[in-house]
Design a protein around this nucleic acid. Structure first.
Length: 468
RNA sequence: GUCCCCAUCGUCUAGACGGCCUAGGACACCACCCUUUCAAGGUGGCGACACGGGUUCGAAUCCCGUUGGGGACGCCA
């Protein structure tokens, strides 16, 4: 039997970190076993579901590269099917109409809480045969009152629930629309899902779903409940813990592989290995090896991983992603040095693509103003002669290439009796506007003779103006 | 409150069969080295088996309890 997994988000927000990891695990499990990965949008909550969220989720999946083989399927398009199943459950005596009002239910809950009991529906409409005038009924599933439900979870092991702890959950609202626990069961069944890989928060729903499945005469799929991701305060991950939206990480200059790598290591590991290519993940990941305990999201480790990926990835790949950020800054890389070469020069000095883009702007356009501190220290009347000497020397350097440029700068330093740094730093500030850049010879090579000379002139003018 | 789940450095984690663990790696942090800036890199340091009982010749590893944390308890998903 081919393995079929699914990712089933509800479109009430963006694709977040937790969802992305669950999706990754599902995707990995399917791909590793030659199975199929299905995307299903659980949009039965009309109030909160939005088309923008659907797009955001799709966009996030695409950016991460988690391709699905089937879908996206929308639950709102399957209403007929759910109605039919509800009918069947009703006819078979597995479900019944409940005419209790919200007020009654609230009162019941309050009483139970007061008695320190677990609040749950007491089944008072189970035996009702007559409708109650003026009340549109909901449909409740008639949960078994005895026995146990055993979940043999791939991650948690055997978990046993007592049916007495469960109540008769609502499967259809008074307007006739189906609720989550019903739609999930029907869809997983219809879509032949073999492995339900989802968040830990659904573990408690599992026995109910299994009971519905049994009432329908079906065999439950295999379950794997992955532990949650918590924020640094140990609470459920949310906005206040920083970025939780996957697409925000793109905006912040992360490479999708870095995020994926970070996510796969949350709750899973393979010895001491930290870096996993997609192929390695595919070869090594086993859902059974996933941890049972929740883990805390650690932004600084993600940042480190991102830097590792920026350093280790082929420059062409990084350039591809970098051009997105350059574009956001209104820069067209075609108007300057080869972007791939710029990446090569910057690869070891950027933790994010945003940082790299910002630090590379000067290659493509005139910087607005000098970094004040760097200018104050390096563009002074004392350094003016050095810059002039550099200008004269650089004007005639042949070829305009790294080694020759290095020799030229070195020669100026020696002639002035200065250490290399004393010459290189003013030059760096002059050409880049700030105190940081790739090695000076590389920087000059990329910048080109024309721009280099023009910027030295600009720096000289700046010194003159400041002195006046 | 009730039910379910969880528990190794601040964080992510290694830890088959209990002995190889004076508990390993990574991030972060600190120091030093390298260095034309910033980085990268190198070396070292800091730092944990929640607690209490068992079982055993021997427990981070097994059992029980305590404590702590998380989740669920909706006409949300």
């Amino acid at each position: 039997m081919t393995i079929r997994t699914r990712f089933a988000p509800s479109p009430t927000g963006y694709l977040h970190i937790g969802g992305a990891r669950t999706a990754l695990f599902s995707w990995l499990h399917a791909r590793r076993h030659g199975g199929r990965f299905i995307l299903r949008i659980e949009d039965t909550d009309l109030e909160r579901s939005t088309a923008e969220s659907v797009n955001a989720i799709l966009e996030g999946m695409t950016w991460l590269g988690l391709e699905y083989d089937e879908g996206p399927f929308f639950q709102t398009r399957r209403m007929e099917r759910y109605r039919e199943v509800i009918r069947r459950l009703l006819d078979g005596g597995h479900a019944y109409y409940c005419y209790c009002t919200k007020e009654e239910l609230d009162a019941l809950r309050a009483e139970q809480m007061a008695r320190k009991e677990k609040p749950r529906y007491d089944g008072r409409c189970r035996a009702r045969t007559e409708p109650r005038p003026g009340v549109e009924p909901v449909v409740r599933f008639r949960n078994p009152t005895e026995g146990q439900v055993v979940v043999d979870d791939l991650i948690r092991g055997r978990v046993v629930f007592d049916n007495r702890e469960l109540d008769d959950l609502i499967i259809a609202r008074s307007d006739g629309t189906p609720t989550y626990n019903l739609t999930v069961v029907v869809d997983d069944l219809d879509m032949n899902i073999t492995h339900v890989i989802r968040g830990d928060d659904h573990l408690n729903n599992t026995p109910r779903q299994i009971n519905i499945l049994r009432a329908l005469g079906a065999e439950p799929p295999v379950y794997a409940h992955v532990p949650m991701i918590l924020g640094e305060d140990g609470k459920r991950l949310s906005k206040r813990h920083g970025a939780v939206s996957v697409m925000q990480y793109r905006e912040d200059g992360y490479l999708p592989e870095a995020l994926l790598n970070y996510l796969v290591r949350l709750g899973w590991s393979h010895g001491d290995q930290e870096i996993f290519s997609l192929d390695e993940m595919l070869a090594l990941f086993d859902i059974k090896d996933v941890n049972t305990s929740a883990s805390t999201f650690n932004p600084s480790k993600l940042l480190w991983l991102n830097q590792q990926y920026i350093m280790r990835s082929p420059p062409e790949h990084v350039a591809h992603h970098l051009s997105y950020h350059l574009g956001r800054r209104g820069v067209d890389p075609a108007g300057g040095p080869d972007l791939v070469e710029v990446v090569r020069a910057q690869q070891e000095r950027a933790k994010t693509l945003v940082e790299m883009a910002d630090n590379s702007l000067f290659f493509y356009r005139e910087f607005e103003e000098y970094d004040p501190k760097a200018a104050r220290k390096n563009l002074t009347p004392e350094t003016a002669p050095v810059l002039e000497a550099l200008r004269a020397r650089l004007a005639g350097v042949e070829p305009w290439a790294r080694e020759a440029l290095h020799q030229a700068v070195l020669a100026v330093a020696e002639a002035a009796g200065l250490k290399l740094g004393k010459v290189a730093q003013p030059l760096r500030v002059a050409v880049s506007g700030g105190p940081v850049s790739p090695p000076i010879d590389v920087t000059l090579e990329l910048l080109g003779r024309e721009r280099t000379l023009a910027r030295i002139d600009r720096a000289l003018a700046h010194i003159g103006a400041a002195a006046a």
